[in-house]
Structure formats: structure tokens, C-alpha cells
């Protein structure tokens, strides 16, 4: 990651140790994951032990230490979605992409994430691809949803 960008983020957070979560969130917003060399750089600049940074990076589910796919498929597994059949939707996404939840396809096109609740319970079961919400999703609709993003990337 661009050193200048990292410096800017650190400056915005006034080089505070307590802001490490916010700093890593900002890095991930740009890079889609937390590159190791960036974390090492942050550790040096903040004079904060690298193990402490990794402790936080591995504790919070939002952080990823490996690159993720171009499109992220979030399958909501909150209670309302679960009752409405979220597990079957997840099965179907996994079967279609030949990867498991929290994994990325070899071509780095898709990553699957499960989320606990997106607060859109009235629309259950919800699947979110990048920023697009799909409500009342049935397993039969998954293929069509995914192929839209596949063809969009080819265009």
C-alpha cells in the first residue's frame, strides 16, 4: 500500500495507539485487506508492538489478513434470515462457487462472508453482493444473482 496514504491515515488518527482499530479499518477500506508490510509499517510508526496489532487484527471478524475477491457475497445468517432459510442459500452459494464461507475463489472474483445480522430482518433472507441488497432470496435465485456479477466483470 502507498506509504503516503498510510501516513495520511495515521495523521488523521493523531498517531494514537487507542485508534489502532480505526486505523486498520481505514487501511482495509482502501486495500480490501490488511497487507502485512503495511501493518509492519504502522507498528514502526506508532511504536506499537506488532503482536499487539496482530492480536487486534485477528480478534475482530471484520479484518482480513488475506486479499479478498472483487465481489463480496454476504449471506446474512441472523435469526430472522436463518428461519427463512439462510443456511440453504449459503449451501447454494458454496456449491455454485465451489468454495466455503470465508473463502475466496481462485480467480479472486468472489469471496463469501457470513454476517450475523444486517438489520434488514423484515426482508429476510437477505444476501448482499458488494452494496446491492437482495431480499427474500430463495436457493433457486442464487445462480442468477451470481452470474450477473460474473458477466458484469467481463464487460
Amino acid at each position: 500500500m502507498d506509504i503516503e496514504k498510510v501516513d495520511r491515515i495515521l495523521e488523521e488518527h493523531e498517531y494514537r495507539h487507542s485508534a489502532i482499530i480505526g486505523i486498520m479499518q481505514d487501511v482495509q477500506d482502501i486495500e480490501n485487506y490488511l497487507p502485512e508490510e503495511t501493518l509492519r509499517y504502522i507498528s514502526d510508526k506508532l511504536e506499537l508492538n506488532l503482536t499487539k496489532i496482530f492480536d487486534v487484527a485477528t480478534f475482530y471478524k471484520a479484518f482480513s489478513l488475506v486479499p479478498r475477491g472483487r465481489h463480496t457475497i454476504k449471506v446474512c445468517c441472523g435469526t430472522a434470515c436463518h428461519l427463512a432459510g439462510a443456511a440453504r442459500n449459503l449451501d447454494q452459494v458454496e456449491r455454485t462457487l465451489h468454495i466455503k464461507a470465508e473463502e475466496t475463489t481462485d480467480d479472486r472474483m468472489f469471496s463469501i462472508e457470513t454476517v450475523n445480522c444486517l438489520g434488514a430482518c423484515a426482508l429476510a433472507p437477505v444476501v448482499v453482493v458488494d452494496e446491492d441488497y437482495y431480499d427474500a432470496v430463495k436457493p433457486g435465485k442464487i445462480e442468477k444473482i451470481l452470474s450477473y456479477y460474473r458477466s458484469e466483470s467481463e464487460r
Binding site: 494514537r16 495507539h17 487507542s18 485508534a19 489502532i20 482499530i21 480505526g22 486498520m24 479499518q25 499487539k52 492480536d55 487486534v56 480478534f59 475482530y60 471478524k61 471484520a62 479484518f63 450475523n116
Partner: peptide, 25 residues
């Protein structure tokens, strides 16, 4: 302060530790 996807941080002591920039235990 934005959370980072840890349910346990809804617990008050964990939440405060998270604001302090550590793992929310």
C-alpha cells in the same frame, strides 16, 4: 467509534476495551 464485527463488544466492559484500541475481551 466503529465496531469491527465482534458481538461480545456489545458487553459494556468489552466495548470500553475496544474503544481503548484493544481486543474486546
Amino acid at each position: 467509534d466503529r465496531g469491527a464485527g465482534a458481538f461480545v463488544c456489545g458487553e459494556e466492559t468489552a466495548l470500553m476495551i475496544s474503544i481503548e484500541g484493544r481486543s474486546g475481551i
